[in-house]
Simulated assay, not measured.
Amino acid sequence: MLCMQIAIVENNESDREKLEEKLHAWAAMNRKCELIIRHFTTGEDFLKEDFNDFHFIFMDIELDGKLNGIDTAQALNKNGSHTPLAFLTMHDIYVYDGYGTNAVAFILKPVMYERIHACMDTALERVSNAKYIYNSKDTILSIPYRDILYCQAALHYTALVTVSGTITHKIPFYQMMEQLPKQFIRCHRTTSVNIMHVKQIKGRELLMGNSIWLTISKPYLTQVRDAYMDWISI
């Protein structure tokens, strides 16, 4: 099952709660993914985050702080964000201001479930199709991130252990880490696991979906346990 992280940038608590209800209704009906939803009331707070961690952004145009939603979306674009977003507003006078951003929808409040449904279907399609591109001297291969169980450093190479086998790629482990999405958690100096494929944590070991036990180094134990608890409690 896929895990999607959604950002809601909204300063009105009632509007945020109604949007969240519709998002959870979509997830319950869809049954293909789980949602992690994070809330922000200002554009300034949201821009402090690693926005590439999010799969979709719902952005209210009228926000607290100095930046409105349009300003925040434009700042995301300038910083290289490609995350799709939907603007939320009580007024349709802003619709043309959203051009030049990554907006895929302009949703008038009160938001209708059908509009949220369409946005989330778009986000799910993007996540489902997300792939790591393996490009060697004589081979080009696309590997869905959902099919990668874990990655391990091997000198100047990185081993990708997938559901169908192991591929060794000539790329340093630290460079591989920079390309992996948020569901990959470092459990050792040389190992990063896809939290979606972790079946059990016992002491300082974790059991992967291929029945392999991996060691958790002490410095990473807390973050691995927290990530796993977040995943299984969604």
Rank of each mutant, 00 (worst) to 15 (best):
L76F: 07
Q179N: 10
Y150H: 13
K131Y: 10
D121E: 15
L2W: 11
E125N: 14
Y134L: 11
F173C: 12
V161L: 09
A73M: 02
G165P: 09
A227V: 02
R186C: 08
Y132Q: 13
T168D: 03
P219N: 04
I212L: 10
R126I: 13
L2N: 14
S14G: 01
S164M: 05
W213P: 03
I93H: 15
K131F: 09
P172H: 04
N52L: 09
A154Y: 11
P110W: 08
N12Q: 08
F56T: 02
R16A: 15
R146K: 15
R189M: 10
H24P: 00
L19E: 03
D230N: 08
T166Y: 00
Q152W: 01
E125H: 14
F51M: 10
Q175C: 06
H82W: 02
I107R: 02
H169K: 08
G43Y: 03
T166V: 13
A130S: 15
A27P: 00
R204S: 12
A86E: 05
I212T: 12
R204W: 00
K48V: 09
M29Y: 02
H91C: 04
F51K: 03
H197C: 07
L141Q: 10
I133A: 12
V127A: 13
P144T: 13
N79Q: 11
E10M: 04
E178M: 05
D226M: 06
N12F: 01
F46C: 09
T41N: 07
A123F: 10
L214M: 07
F184E: 04
I36S: 09
Q179S: 14
L63I: 06
M90K: 04
I70R: 01
Y228V: 02
I216P: 10
W231E: 05
R189L: 06
H188T: 01
T190L: 00
D138Y: 15
K199D: 12
C151H: 03
E125D: 13
P84E: 03
S14V: 14
K18W: 05
T122M: 15
D60A: 09
C33A: 15
M196E: 15
T222C: 08
Q200M: 12
N135Q: 15
A130H: 13
H55K: 05
I212Q: 14
E49L: 04
I133N: 06
E34V: 07
I167A: 02
N11F: 02
L108T: 03
L76H: 03
Y145R: 09
S211P: 00
G98F: 04
V95P: 00
A75Q: 13
F87W: 05
K170R: 14
D97A: 09
D92G: 05
M29P: 00
T222R: 12
L35Y: 08
K48N: 14
F87K: 01
M176C: 15
Y220R: 10
